[in-house]
Design a protein around this nucleic acid. Structure first.
Lengths: 336, 336
DNA sequence: ACAGTAGAAGAAAGCGCTTTCTTTTTTATC
DNA sequence: GATAAAAAAGAAAGCGCTTTCTTCTACTGT
């Protein structure tokens, strides 16, 4: 026992053991009727006795259906990816799909991830973050694979997509703050991460400040890492204390980094420094001060997206796009 | 264009187009030699022109190898699962495996997850958390599937496993604190979550306090949720302020909940209340006060585990078990 | 110039299922 | 009890590959 490669029972062995034909076994396996109750019971007994489980792969070949779906994600370092995944996996569970997940490390890795997902012979794909260029997309569409994209869809109108709309609420928020007198706004960005998203955030801000008089707006390129940002701003703030500045951060962890840097130097938030994170997680609420964010239900983003894919696979998708609005939630890191 | 189900090119069409036999195409596909350079070039041209990608599924049937591995996890609500996953996925990427991930919601769901992973026809499986009973395990071993288990291995010595050893460092820590005079220790547990882990934590603590005189130790059953715990302890502490108590929490988020409850009421940490979380994430460092935890590199846990599986699949695994020691990292939530 | 051999290519079986087409058996009808 | 119709079961092809076994070429050495 143990180490010797026991070979799995096949449908043929079941048929032989039960003294019926392959077709009959297949019928009871798939509940396709035209099998007498006694035969069915007999076959099921043999199946149980042999511990037979049908080969999904042979089945896939025969039916041309694999029940596999691919999920392509940026390397899952962000907490919210968790929630998206959870939503997707739950839907897969419900509909009986096996999700294969492939991650990419930065933009240059996307193409390879797409190759891998195609080779793995999935029936449909969900791609997060849309760091896709035209070539990637055409590779996908060449195989006429159902695909739904979370995020930007400028390149490829023909695909289903779900959009997280930060721009509207972000622009509205900035407008409001500028009207209230805010004159210094900073936006941190890591050009190597989520560049698509980040461009949109920046555009949303710029669309406002470019028409407002006397607003000092700057984008600052910096590595998206808690420690890097914490250290950077700690020394930064030591030299020149923050003076009524509003920081917009792509992610709550960055806001926490800056907040901690300021706090650890004895400054007060939001009196001397306001921070607002765009993408938030539960940690925005757990941090002190709690971080203001633009909220969206990531679990739902994941589940809706996967649901769209399953509908596409069944040919019953009516709405090819879905928009998630975000809502600004003021917490303790900003005055408004 | 677009909507019509373009059917994928098959190896047969490539062969026909190139005027060679299937076998020849297969040879160039797999680089199995005995093909003249010209033929090879010709075939490759046709492949490129047709946009042919071999069917992994047909290949799988023919070779009996799927290059699929299964990952079975608790529904990924914890941050560290992220890191484990990242480690696993990276290894899969390197070795060319397609990881299919299946999650389970609580103990009662494990069996179904195992069914799903088996049906998906993977070559090997990684199971996290080992909330497996004997039946589950025998189901797995029936198929003589290579499997590596992260966590407890009491049931099944024959499987490869990687163990995260919190017990040793936890017991050592408690011993130390008791010797230093701590007399009140509380341990929070959610019986519905990670029961295996939690039992071990509790055993480690009890093994110490049961032999120490005059230590007041209690386990408290409570739902593992930030808000539930925050609310509970906020009212709790309002009635009776914490008095030199040491709280041991399974996870850093719970420590943060209690800390915040105490902090928001104006109590001081660690002077009036000490909290130590067992499983920590980066948020232990981001919180204020920073939370003391027992650290382990989750990414490495994931990558080592998956590496063990790939070695099993290649038949080159020598060490069937791997132990990760944890180290206590004192931060600001405890005096020691 | 001829047997011998290595290299290149093809034929065909087989992987484990599903499914269509037939054939056999059962049941209903008059 | 004979016939039609429905239900149950079987035979066999086919899904898209890999791989073993053959066959066919084109060299090599003598």
């Amino acid at each position: 026992m143990g180490n010797d490669k026991k070979t799995r029972a096949t449908i043929y062995q079941v048929a032989k053991e039960a003294n019926v034909s392959l077709a009959t076994v297949s019928r009871v396996l798939n509940g396709k009727g035209n099998v007498s109750p006694e035969t069915e019971r007999l076959v099921n007994d043999v199946i149980a006795r042999l511990g037979y489980i049908p080969s999904g792969i042979a089945r896939g070949l025969a039916t041309q259906l694999t029940a596999n779906v691919g999920i392509v994600l940026p390397s899952p370092n962000y907490v919210y990816i968790n929630n998206i995944m959870a939503g997707m996996l739950d839907v897969c569970k419900i509909y009986g799909y096996s999700p294969s997940v492939f991650t990419y490390e930065g933009i240059s890795d996307v193409a390879s991830a797409i190759d891998r997902v195609i080779a793995s012979r999935v029936e449909g794909i969900v791609v997060f973050n849309s760091q896709l260029n035209a070539e990637d997309v055409s590779k996908l569409t060449n195989f006429s694979l159902p695909i739904v994209i979370i995020g930007e869809d400028s390149l490829h109108q023909h695909n289903a997509n779900v959009n997280i709309d930060y721009s509207t609420s972000l622009a509205r928020y900035i407008t409001e703050r500028v009207n209230q007198g805010i004159r210094t706004i900073r936006f941190l960005r890591d050009p190597n991460k989520d560049w698509h998203m980040i461009n949109r955030f920046q555009n949303a801000i710029e669309s406002v400040v470019s028409t407002a008089a006397g607003v000092d707006f700057q984008s600052i390129d910096i590595s998206d890492s808690y420690t890097v940002i914490y250290d950077y701003y700690k020394t930064q703030f030591q030299h020149t204390p923050p003076a009524n500045e509003l920081y917009i951060l792509p992610r709550d962890s960055l806001a926490i980094a800056i907040n901690n840097a300021a706090l650890d130097l004895g400054y007060r938030i939001p009196e001397q420094l306001e921070t607002v994170a765009i993408v938030g997680t539960k940690h925005a609420r757990m941090a002190r001060p709690q971080v203001s964010t633009f909220e969206v239900d990531w679990y739902e983003v994941g589940s809706i997206t996967m649901r769209m894919l399953t509908k596409m696979l069944q040919g019953t998708l009516s709405n090819k796009s879905y928009n998630f609005a975000t809502t600004y939630v003021r917490r303790k890191s900003s005055k408004r």
